[in-house]
Design a protein around this nucleic acid. Structure first.
Length: 949
RNA sequence: GGGCGACUAGCUCAGUUGGUUAGAGCGUUCCCCUCACACGGGAGAGGUCCAAGGUUCAAGUCCUUGGUCGCCCACCA
């Protein structure tokens, strides 16, 4: 992104103000300066704990948990998008009378955090082993305090309206206990087991990682074709491999049972080069005859497929590597070499022995550790696993039955598909940062002894299992050692929606707020987190209250919205480690939080990723400024209402706003009825959009209403009324504009909380008013809907635009008002114009509007026509200002051409019997009406063109 | 190897169940420092909706095939 240093305050201060106006204006800055305002409200909201659930209305429950950010530093723009969306919904629900809980917290993020701290240590040339487990954990806790504090501050500053009195951390005692409880229960149920299997291993992190934590990257590589001598003969069999170093652990060569080339060799032995070990040639269906030579080397300890085949054929599993990715003593003379170094040496040695058939350049996918991007190593080791099939079954059913609504819908299919093909989850990690597995091993008989219960004790502020078994129940031995492993970080986050509410205890919060109403997360963690919460929530929360709960009461959330990701211009995911992350606070400083929020929300169409655009940020900032200045207009003019003898209380009295629009005589009622009609329908639009997570649509509706309808038309329209001599009229106008603005602010509040809070509090409010956050979100009012007003207003707007358009085309001096002639065959339209003469003249920049019931003489003037009226400005008015008949003619021709095309296609359709008989009546009728209008327009245009020629 | 998404104005993107002249922001052209706002106001220009077929009275929208780009999943050495 380009650097943009925008000067907030334009140096051009050329507006001439009266001293009085200047005094008033000085109290509210001319341009919106968000920094101070946002800082102030962010702190105030937090200090007052304004967003405690208890402060919200006692209506229907709306609860949502924050996807806990990892304490790996600070939050990035992706978080800001997520938090903006959540906050919009939360604020909207809160303003709609819901008892609203947004529960915040953070994730200890086991491997990720450990990696960050290890990198810090590396700068001091230390490894975690140098510190020891205790000291290392202390360091991580220190880091947690720092990072967690930063994140919390950022969230507060970005306006997240969370209930901070309920903040949670996955490694705090209460949640530690929930983890132990969950583990012990699943262990007792046989859903957690321990065993020696093939897992993904990160040699750098030196821990097992789950399938999901291995990311695949396409890399150039080589496929080496190696010759393995057949024992007791001069023959060779050729095998192909991308990983020659694993040949040291080969325990067989496999061919397809039906492969006639090798039938005679099956059962014979191969002399494994470099190791001088005889290994069998076996037959297995898994082998692809077409690939390479059709023979494959089998290394059960270092390849998942070979592992399976090894177990099928009872082959040895020879592990030739150390946990940190070097060759071990089983690797003979290569022991001690790094795995990649060993690869090179082995190729050199094989070549020297004439056993390298050829090397082929290929591109292939290599598995990388999601965290540190080292090449992951398939490895056999003893780990803890969770049996997923039964859990996934229940989840599939719940999602399939719609107990959880997934939005966008296509993500539902993806989720169901994943659940369908789920495999057991390796949940143990050889890390130091996390929840220790509550199992003790008897040193004498190797019995596994679980903790007696899930109680925790707190040592130095840190939790650990308290119910340590005293002796082995099997052999009575007292030498019990706790399993050194910790749990995958996603195990604890999988419990998040209920552990944070007090589970496994039957707490009031759990009863009140579980199941949560909604989860909003990025689709990138659908499998990691969302799916696991569903499975664990369904399984574990049953029977937690005295009443039995069915699945609809056990789901962790009733709706799941998967939001888009923020990407760089190149399409890559925003990532701090890649240097593509954007610091939201910096942008916030530059443009304002509300502007950033608005920009993000207005780009957040479901299902489409977002590419940050500076233009959009600038546009959002301009919008914030526009709102600010609309308010400024009201404030700067407030003295006028006092001059009318009215008081601010007239605007703020209870119930006043609800009675809008006010009428002061017939005159001027149209525009007021119109703006409230618009408000009503926009409020409905916004609510409908938010209900379905169409944040961009909500933003667009508000933007269009506020800037277009409210500022460009309504404010301009009513300006004179506000200063009217007629006190009654002035007060009515003030009440209306105040009420409309107030409603608009409330509609804007979910997306722009700071700006709206500031302005709302500056406006006169009832004495009991507390914060806009607890004011009502505008609801559509049937008695505000006024189609007549909307239609009339549209006609008047057309008239004004026509006048402006002609003036521009005639190049009239903007300072000079000119008279115009107006004709409509429709009495109602003429009366409408007559009633609204003042705004028509003012906004159309006309000196006079001569309304006629007789057709106009078009000669000697420019004419604009619609189907309902004609407007004419005499050429005489433009003397010396460039009467350009050719320009008008050219434009008219173009318009006529467009109309002709349109009319033609409509006529054709209306001549089509199939259309007439099959299309719904309203479509046909609508088409007829439109056609008639177009024909009138065209006719007028053609007449006009004749005259111009 | 499967699956998903995108392709609409110069740029970035909207366009919910097919229906009447396809919209927005930015940029651009012309005019305007009008007493809320130049982060502004007014008036314009600008699109064969990736391609080709198909369904339908009617397709940017539904179906098929193809193209380009992106993402996710996957044990073919």
């Amino acid at each position: 992104m380009r650097a943009a240093n925008i000067v907030i305050n334009s140096p051009r201060q050329l507006n001439v103000c009266t001293p009085e106006r200047e005094r008033m204006a000085r109290e509210i800055p001319k341009a919106y300066e968000p920094q101070e305002i946002e800082e102030r409200w962010a702190n105030a909201w937090f200090q007052e704990q304004l967003f405690r659930a208890e402060n919200s209305a006692d209506g229907p429950r709306f609860s949502i948990t924050l996807p806990p950010p990892n304490i790996t530093g600070s939050i990035h723009i992706g978080h800001m998008l997520e938090h903006t969306q959540i906050d919009m919904l939360v604020r909207w629900r809160r303003m709609s009378g819901c008892r609203t809980l947004w529960l915040p917290g953070m994730d200890h993020a086991g491997i990720a955090t450990q990696y960050v701290v290890e990198r810090q240590l590396a700068k001091e040339h230390l490894r975690r082993q140098d510190l020891g487990r205790e000291e290392f954990e202390r360091r991580v806790w220190q880091w947690k305090a720092e990072s967690g504090g930063t994140i919390k501050q950022q969230m507060i500053r970005l306006g997240a309206s969370c209930d901070w009195t309920r903040e949670r951390f996955t490694l705090e005692p209460a949640l530690y206990r929930a983890v132990l409880h969950a583990f012990l229960r699943l262990y007792r149920e046989g859903l957690i087991y321990r065993g020696r299997y093939m897992v993904n291993w990160c040699p750098r992190c030196q821990t097992a990682i789950s399938d999901l934590e291995v990311v695949h990257a396409e890399r150039p590589g080589k496929l080496w074709h190696l010759r393995y001598p057949i024992a007791g003969s001069q023959e060779h069999i050729i095998v192909a491999t991308t990983r020659p170093e694993t040949m040291l652990g080969d325990t067989a060569v496999a061919v397809h049972p039906g492969d006639e080339r090798y039938t005679r060799l099956v059962g014979r032995k191969v002399l494994l080069p470099l190791m001088d070990r005889e290994i069998p040639i076996i037959a297995d269906d898994y082998v692809d005859r077409e690939f390479g030579s059709g023979a494959v080397k089998i290394t059960p300890a270092h390849d998942p497929n070979d592992f399976e085949m090894g177990r099928r054929h009872g082959l040895d599993e020879i592990d030739v590597m150390t946990p940190d990715g070097r060759m071990n003593t089983a690797a003979g003379k290569y022991a001690g070499l790094d795995r990649f170094e060993a690869r090179k040496r082995i190729i050199t040695d094989m070549e020297a022995m004439g056993l390298l058939e050829r090397a082929e350049d290929i591109s292939h996918a290599v598995g990388l550790c999601d965290r540190c991007k080292s090449e992951a190593e398939p490895r056999v080791s003893t780990q803890w696993f969770m049996r997923m099939k039964p859990l996934a079954e229940a989840a599939k059913q719940a999602v399939g039955e719609g107990l959880i609504e997934v939005v966008p819908d296509n993500q539902r299919t993806i989720l169901l598909n994943w659940l369908e093909n789920i495999r057991d989850w390796c949940i143990s990690r050889q890390l130091w940062w996390g929840h220790r597995i509550p199992i003790w091993h008897c040193e004498d008989c190797k019995e596994m002894v679980p903790a007696l219960d899930s109680r925790v004790e707190i040592v130095e502020g840190r939790a650990r299992a308290a119910s340590v078994p005293a002796k082995c129940p099997k052999c009575g031995g007292a030498k019990l050692v706790q399993d050194p492993d910790v749990l995958d970080t996603w195990f604890s986050s999988g419990l998040w929606p209920f552990s944070t509410l007090g589970w496994p205890d039957d707490t009031p919060d759990l009863r009140e707020f579980y199941p949560t109403s909604l989860l909003i997360s990025g689709y990138d963690i659908l499998f990691f987190w969302d799916a696991r919460m569903i499975m664990l929530g369904l399984h574990l929360t049953g029977g937690m209250t005295r009443e039995a709960r069915d699945a609809s009461q056990r789901v962790p959330f009733r709706r799941l919205y998967l939001h888009s990701l923020v990407r760089t211009a190149e399409g890559a995911k925003m990532s701090k480690t890649k240097g593509t992350g954007v610091d939201p606070l910096q942008l916030t400083q530059q443009y304002g939080t509300d502007a950033m929020r608005f920009m993000l929300a207005s780009m957040a169409a479901p299902g489409t990723d977002i590419v940050l655009s500076e233009d959009r940020i600038l546009g959002a900032r301009a919008f914030a400024n526009k709102i600010w200045n609309a308010a400024r207009f009201l404030f700067v003019n407030l003295e006028k209402i006092e001059a009318q003898g009215a008081t601010l209380d007239d605007l703020a009295a209870p119930g006043i706003r609800a009675r809008a629009p006010y009428a002061a005589g017939g005159e001027g009622a149209l525009e007021h009825r119109w703006i409230f009609s618009r408000l009503s329908s926009v409020a409905a639009q916004v609510a409908a959009a938010l209900e379905e997570f169409r944040f961009h649509e909500a933003c667009q509706a508000i933007y269009h209403f506020f800037w277009g309808d409210f500022c460009d038309w309504y404010i301009e329209w009513v300006k004179p009324q506000l200063a009217a001599q007629d006190r009654e009229q002035a007060v009515a106008a003030w009440r209306n504009i105040f009420a409309a603005f107030d409603l608009a602010l409330r509609m804007l509040h979910p997306v722009m909380p700071f700006l709206t809070e500031e302005l709302w509090r500056r406006l006169p409010q009832p004495a009991t008013a507390r914060s806009i956050a607890f004011d009502k979100f505008p609801e559509p009012r049937p008695h505000w809907a006024d189609r007549g007003a909307e239609r009339d207003m549209a006609t008047l707007q057309e008239l004004i635009v026509a006048a402006r358009n002609m003036r521009a085309e005639m190049k009239l001096d903007p300072k000079r008002k000119v008279p115009a002639d107006f004709y409509s065959p429709d009495t109602a339209v003429r009366e409408l114009a007559q009633r609204n003469l003042d705004p028509l003249l003012r906004l159309g920049n006309l000196s006079e509007l001569r309304i006629s019931s007789a057709k106009l003489d078009p000669a000697g003037g420019a004419v604009r026509s619609t189907a309902r009226f004609d407007l004419r400005i005499a050429y005489g008015e433009a003397q010396g200002e460039g009467v350009d008949k050719q320009a008008e003619l050219a434009r008219a021709r173009k318009d006529a051409e467009r109309l002709e095309k349109d009319i033609h296609s409509k006529q054709q359709r209306l001549a089509d019997d199939a259309f007439l008989s099959k299309a719904p009546a309203h479509v046909v009728e609508g088409l007829r009406n439109t056609l008639a209008e177009r024909q009138i327009e065209l006719q007028k245009l053609q007449t006009r063109m004749q005259q111009l020629l």
